[in-house]
């Protein structure tokens, strides 16, 4: 069904395949709303999720997705494994594959590691985030959330705001959004951009786009990935990049706010807005993104395992 064995990057899917993922996700969304949230489709398949870096929502989201499709899922986390006894990652991988798993979901703190692991295994791999490189399932759930909200994609204006340079979400979203016809602007100071950003549309302050953008996509400040301090102070960040009530009120009537989570409250998004997000009928789609995540991951598991 899909042309590639594994999904390591958003570029592994062409436009038709992306639409196929989004359409299948619609059906899986319906299943998640039922009383019995389970179908027998992947009965007998075993999925191993290998997380070499902490995660809450991605790991749980994949686990729920696999279980709703009746696949068995085993979770491996580096913190509680033989890696601590000195086993190498490749040996760990071989051990897990010897148990006849059908698909691997892998997250690793270093860019490219997931690709390396994929190259030595013959089962499909879904990248659940590698270093600063790619997080394709996040970008897919985001485009699904956008499509569900606006009922279209072509021509929507999206601003990716904040820590671009350390963010795999930003890189995946940027290329997927552009592929699907959205207009992407990166809002970040030079020190949070790569050395060469000549191909990007860039603004340095959120105030430059706030009244014009359809989707304000706030990136998480990746403190854990900053080897050196890339930003002078929270106050400075707040002045140019944070979303507060005043800026929220300047946004277009039908525009929306997104964030891949977890939110650093008071940095990317102010507390009051996070409280507002709990109420019904607002345009802050953070919870919708999480809900969509399960459906989109069900679609990916379904389509990837369907080719074998």
């Amino acid at each position: 069904m899909l042309s590639k064995k594994s999904i390591l990057s958003v570029d592994d899917l062409d436009t038709g395949e992306i639409m196929q993922v989004l359409e299948s996700a619609d059906s899986f969304m319906d299943i998640s709303r039922r009383e019995i949230k389970k179908v027998p489709t992947l009965r007998g398949k075993t999925v191993a999720s290998l997380f070499f870096e902490p995660s809450t929502r991605t790991r749980i989201s994949f686990e729920i997705a696999a279980k709703r499709l009746s696949a068995d899922i085993v979770n491996f986390s580096a913190q509680a494994s033989s890696l601590l006894k000195g086993e190498t990652i490749m040996d760990t991988l071989r051990t897990i594959l010897s148990m006849q798993v059908d698909l691997l979901v892998i997250r690793h703190r270093d860019s490219g590691t997931v690709k390396l692991m994929d190259s030595v295994v013959n089962v499909p791999v879904i990248n659940a985030g590698d270093g600063k490189h790619q997080h394709p399932t996040q970008a897919l759930l985001d485009i699904y959330t956008i499509k569900n909200h606006f009922n279209r994609l072509e021509g929507l204006k999206v601003a990716l705001v904040g820590d671009y340079i350390n963010s795999r979400v930003a890189r995946s979203c940027q290329s997927l959004f552009e592929k699907m016809g959205l207009e992407v602007t990166i809002v970040a100071p030079a020190m949070l951009l790569p050395e060469d950003w000549s191909g990007f549309k860039v603004e340095h302050s959120i105030d430059r786009i706030i009244e014009d953008t359809d989707i304000l996509y706030m990136l998480r400040m990746q403190f854990e990935r900053q080897d050196r301090k890339l930003y002078p102070s929270v106050r400075e960040y707040n002045r140019y990049l944070s979303l507060d009530m005043k800026r929220l009120s300047r946004m277009k009537k039908d525009s929306v706010v997104m964030h891949p989570g977890p939110v650093n409250r008071g940095i990317e998004i102010y507390d009051e807005i996070m409280e507002l997000a709990k109420e019904k009928g607002n345009n802050i789609l953070i919870d919708e993104q999480v809900t969509a995540g399960v459906a989109v991951r069900m679609a990916l598991l379904y389509l990837v395992l369907g080719q074998s």
Binding site: S27, I31, V39, T41, L42, Y302
Partner: peptide, 8 residues
Amino acid sequence: TFYRDDYD
């Protein structure tokens, strides 16, 4: 579709 016995 999700209930078929010939998914593979």
